[in-house]
Design a protein around this nucleic acid. Structure first.
Length: 249
DNA sequence: AACCTCATCAACCGCCGCCCC
DNA sequence: TGGGGCGGCGGTTGATGAGGT
C-alpha cells in the first residue's frame, strides 16, 4: 500500500540516541554540512533513518538552540502567534530564535494550554470559555480577545516584555510575513559570529572551530552561555578539539 | 521503601507539498 | 503534466522522572 517507508526498516535503530550516535552525527554534519538527510545515516555510519537524524539535529544537537523553559516573553509571543496562526508550530518557532517547533509544541501542550484554561481561555479558539463572551465573539477577531485576556492576566510581565510583545503583535508587516516563507525576522545566533572567527568549511554555520564542546556538553545550547564562552571552553577542550580536527581532516 | 499516578519531552509516524525528471 | 523522491510539518506515543500516598 501507499508509499515506501522513508528508509529501510531492517536494521534501523529506534529510540533514544546514544552519545556515540550523537558524536557521529555531529562529526558528519561538521564535516559535510546539512545535505541529503536520506544519505546521512549511511555516510555517517549510523543505523538510523534519515528523518531521525534530521530531527535529532534540528531539535537537539543544533548549536544555536536554547535549552530550558520558555521565558515569559517567549510564552506570550507563542500564545499570540498561536491565536493568529493556529498549530503552525514551525512558523511560530521561526519567530523564536533558538527554539524548535517540537519544543514549542511540547511547551504548548504541557504548560500553556493548561495556563490558558485556568485563565478561562479556550486554547484552541483563544475565546473566553464562558458564555458571556459569545457577544464579543461576533464583534472582535480571536486574537483581540486573547490579547486582552493575556494582557489583563499578565500584570507581572515586565514593561519591556509587554512593549516587545506589543511591538511584534502590532506590526502588521511582520504578521503578514508570517504567512509568507520569509526568513526569520530575528535569528542572530547564526549570524553573530564575528567575521574571521570561522575557518569552518561549512559556510552557513557559525564557527565550529570550537565545536567539540558539543560532543561532551550536548545537553546545552550555545545560547545557554552566550557565544563568548566558546573562547573559554577552547582552553579546556583541547583534547577533544584534536579529536574533532582529526575527524575533519 | 515500594508502589502508583501524573507530567514532561524526545522521538516516531504518516501525511503533505515542493521539486525534479 | 504527472509521478516519484525527499524534506518538512504536526499529531501522537512512550520512556522516564518527579511527586504523592
Amino acid at each position: 500500500m501507499g508509499r515506501q517507508p522513508c528508509c529501510d526498516k531492517l536494521g534501523v535503530k529506534k529510540g533514544p540516541w546514544t552519545a556515540e550516535e550523537d558524536k557521529k552525527l555531529i562529526n558528519f554534519i561538521l564535516t559535510n554540512g546539512q545535505c541529503c538527510w536520506r544519505a546521512v545515516p549511511k555516510l555517517a555510519g549510523l543505523r538510523r533513518c534519515g528523518k531521525s537524524c534530521r530531527l535529532r539535529w534540528t531539535n537537539y544537537l543544533r548549536p544555536d538552540l536554547k535549552r530550558g523553559l520558555l521565558s515569559e516573553t517567549e510564552e506570550q509571543l507563542v500564545i499570540d502567534l498561536h491565536a493568529r496562526l493556529g498549530n503552525r508550530w514551525s512558523k511560530i518557532a521561526a519567530r523564536l530564535p533558538g527554539r524548535t517547533d517540537n519544543e514549542i509544541k511540547n511547551h504548548w501542550n504541557t504548560h500553556i494550554k493548561k495556563k490558558l484554561v485556568k485563565m478561562g481561555i479556550d486554547p484552541v479558539t483563544h475565546q473566553p470559555l464562558n458564555k458571556e463572551a459569545k457577544a464579543e465573539q461576533t464583534s472582535s477577531p480571536a486574537h483581540h480577545s486573547a490579547d486582552n485576556h493575556i494582557t489583563e492576566n499578565s500584570s507581572t510581565t515586565p514593561t519591556e516584555d509587554s512593549d516587545l510583545l506589543d511591538a511584534i503583535c502590532n506590526d502588521e508587516a511582520l504578521l503578514n510575513s508570517l504567512w509568507l516563507d520569509e526568513p526569520p525576522l530575528v535569528d542572530a545566533s547564526w549570524s553573530s559570529i564575528p567575521a574571521g572567527e570561522s575557518d569552518c568549511n561549512i559556510s552557513s554555520f557559525p564557527s565550529w572551530d570550537n565545536c567539540s564542546w558539543l560532543l561532551d556538553s550536548q545537553d546545552f545550547g550555545v545560547n545557554d552561555f552566550g557565544f563568548d564562552y566558546l573562547n573559554d571552553i577552547e582552553l579546556n577542550t583541547m583534547n577533544t578539539l584534536e579529536m574533532c580536527d582529526k575527524t575533519v581532516a
